[in-house]
């Protein structure tokens, strides 16, 4: 430690130099890593869309009122459903969910959790297949959480120890009906 050089100027210069070098280094790191990070995100989104629209062969991005919809088509160019990504507050942070819907049947096809910060092992179990299956063929309406095997299509089975996370997912997914119906009138 340089004990004798404690003049205020010296202190400012030291911190400025360390801060500037650190920032320079991190700017380089950012340039280097950000293409990979964006690529992972894009690939995760693409995988999520194909997962929630299983019959789709390809999809097209369509924007209605600044909201992006992913329209899925099969190999004969028939419309098979539309996916949309919605976010909402979870237990530990924001949850982002890709939701595939069939606007004509007014049903949810499947969901996929894109991002979440829920507790590993508890809330994070919302990403598991077993929980996501709850939403297959769920109707466009307010869904319900039950603590037994679901009998009705709108019923979602709770996860022990993850009440808040399940509630959050249910609330986010329950919004999709109105959003999709606004642009995809369907058969109703």
């Amino acid at each position: 430690m340089a004990e004798k050089n404690n003049s205020i100027g010296r202190l400012i210069i030291t911190l400025t130099v360390i801060g500037a070098l650190g920032a320079l280094f991190l700017a380089g790191v950012y340039e280097w890593t950000i293409p990979h990070i964006l690529e992972h995100e894009a690939r995760a989104r693409e995988r999520a869309i194909m997962e929630v629209l299983p019959e789709a062969d390809y999809y097209e991005e369509v924007t209605h009122n600044d909201k992006i919809f992913y329209e899925g088509y099969d190999e004969n160019d028939n419309f098979v459903g539309v996916a949309v990504s919605l976010r909402g507050g979870g237990y530990a942070g924001e949850i982002e969910i890709m939701i595939g819907t069939d606007p004509e049947a007014r049903e949810i096809i499947n969901i996929f959790i894109l991002n979440h910060q829920e507790t590993p092992g508890l809330g994070a179990r919302i990403t598991e297949e077993q929980f996501r299956e709850n939403f297959e063929n769920a109707p466009f309406s307010e869904l319900e959480i039950v603590r037994r095997t679901p009998e009705e299509p709108q019923e979602i089975e709770a996860i022990a120890g993850a009440t808040m996370s399940v509630e959050a997912v249910k609330n986010i997914v329950s919004r999709v009906g109105d959003i999709v119906s606004e642009y995809y009138g369907g058969g109703s």
């Binding site: 050089n5 202190l11 991190l26």
Partner: peptide, 25 residues
């Protein structure tokens, strides 16, 4: 040797933050 005693803690933190941000990215 170049870090004055009075600002050693903030200097350490700046250096640590740099490496943590690197790790994160």
């Amino acid at each position: 040797k170049f870090i004055p005693n009075d600002v050693r803690i903030p200097s350490f933190i700046l250096i640590i933050v740099t490496f943590v941000t690197f790790t994160d990215y």
